[in-house]
């Protein structure tokens, strides 16, 4: 079990609606997973650097030369709502951009 309020605040942070059954499942499952993860506490990681990339820096970088952009019709072909060639979204709750 994790604290249900943690599940709620993380769901809010991740912008995920959870139905009541899913919420219960996640409270239980995340609890089990986090309990399993506690085994990492046994590992001494003093002065161990992190590995955020599996290989050493490859330093790929690109020349600052333009490549043709995607045709606008292609870029917007999957848009769920649009106004002309702009993406359209409903207002922010309570106004203010």
């Amino acid at each position: 079990m994790v604290d249900p309020s943690v599940v709620d605040s993380v769901a809010a942070l991740a912008r995920l609606d959870l139905d009541p059954a899913q919420r219960e499942r996640l409270i239980s499952d995340l609890g089990k997973i986090l309990a399993h993860i506690e085994m990492l506490d046994r590992v001494d990681t003093t002065d161990v650097p992190i590995t955020s990339h599996p290989l050493d820096a490859t330093d790929v970088d690109a020349a600052d030369e333009p490549i043709a952009s995607l045709p606008v019709a292609e870029g917007l072909r999957n848009a769920p709502d649009r106004e002309g060639d702009l993406f359209r979204v409903p207002p922010v709750l309570g106004g203010d951009g």
């Binding site: 995607l70 606008v72 870029g75 060639d85």
Partner: peptide, 8 residues
């Protein structure tokens, strides 16, 4: 023009 300077 909107969204003409975009790519994947």
């Amino acid at each position: 023009q909107p969204n003409t300077q975009t790519c994947p």
